[in-house]
């Protein structure tokens, strides 16, 4: 059968969501940011909530997230996205509000805002990209950098005796009474993408319940920062990141368990 006979509108099974703007993504080849952006936008499109959604971009690689997402967005100072989201949601309780933050933003400079927004139980969704490194500034050590992992500010590997331990902030947040749903996902394989999308969908759906923060960590690669090809970075991530940051739900709503 000729390929051109298949490529017809009636046979379309997948195309990029129209909530992506025309602007090409500024991320490095193979970076999980793009995939995660797409999943969020697909969820917003499928839920039909564009006119009710406000996104908050961080400082870091995703600082320009608003350039790629065709929704109303705010750009926050480094680490402060949960504070913005708190006000936005409290002032407009019927809207869907999400933050999109990296590990430096959410787990280092913004730790206080993160923990307190989660502890107050703000009714928001937080998407947390954890690639264990500061990508934007050129590959420095992050709060989530693994022990022994080489970065430009830990060139001989992270020595925890000198540089401290990596922070499993997601487990920490799951212990707070204000978090309703906490999960850790990845976006490097088709299966992981399907699960991550379901998690992001859940996270947005839970905002309707007014029960607190829904938090989705995405363990992702940073092939530029890790100095590997994208597929090697994904393999390295499976072998090194996942044992330390295991994928799966960490806190699920009690109702679902029953």
């Amino acid at each position: 059968m000729d390929i051109n006979e298949i490529i017809k509108p009636e046979n379309l099974v997948y195309k990029k969501t129209k909530l992506f703007t025309e602007k090409p993504l500024s991320y490095c080849p193979g970076c999980g940011h793009g995939t995660t952006h797409r999943l969020i936008l697909e969820v917003i499109e499928e839920m039909g909530i564009v006119s009710d959604t406000i996104g908050i971009a961080p400082v870091g690689c995703a600082v320009l997230a608003y350039e790629f997402m065709d929704i109303d967005m705010q750009q926050a100072a480094h680490g402060r996205a949960p504070a913005l989201a708190t006000a936005v949601k409290r002032l407009m309780p019927n809207k869907f509000v999400f933050t999109y933050q990296g590990d430096g933003d959410l787990a280092a400079i913004g730790t206080a805002e993160t923990i307190h927004a989660c502890n107050r139980g703000e009714n928001i969704t937080m998407i947390f990209i954890n690639n264990g490194i500061y990508g934007m500034t050129g590959g420095q050590m992050a709060p989530t950098t693994l022990p022994g992992m080489k970065t430009s500010t830990s060139p001989f590997g992270r020595d925890v005796r000198i540089m401290g331990n990596p922070l499993k902030i997601t487990e920490l947040l799951a212990n707070l009474p204000g978090t309703y749903y906490v999960t850790r996902q990845a976006v490097h394989t088709p299966n992981a993408v399907r699960k991550a999308k379901k998690a992001i969908r859940n996270a947005f759906e839970y905002q309707k319940l007014n029960k607190g923060v829904s938090f989705v960590e995405v363990v992702s690669n940073c092939n530029s920062g890790w100095k590997m090809t994208p597929n090697d970075a994904n393999k390295w991530m499976e072998e090194n990141m996942f044992p330390f940051y295991p994928l799966g739900d960490i806190k699920v709503p009690q109702l679902e368990k029953a």
Partner: peptide
């Protein structure tokens, strides 16, 4: 669905 840049469109019959 794994393409980070969303450049692939898929058709099926």
């Amino acid at each position: 669905i794994v393409c980070p840049d969303g450049v692939i469109t898929v058709y099926r019959v």
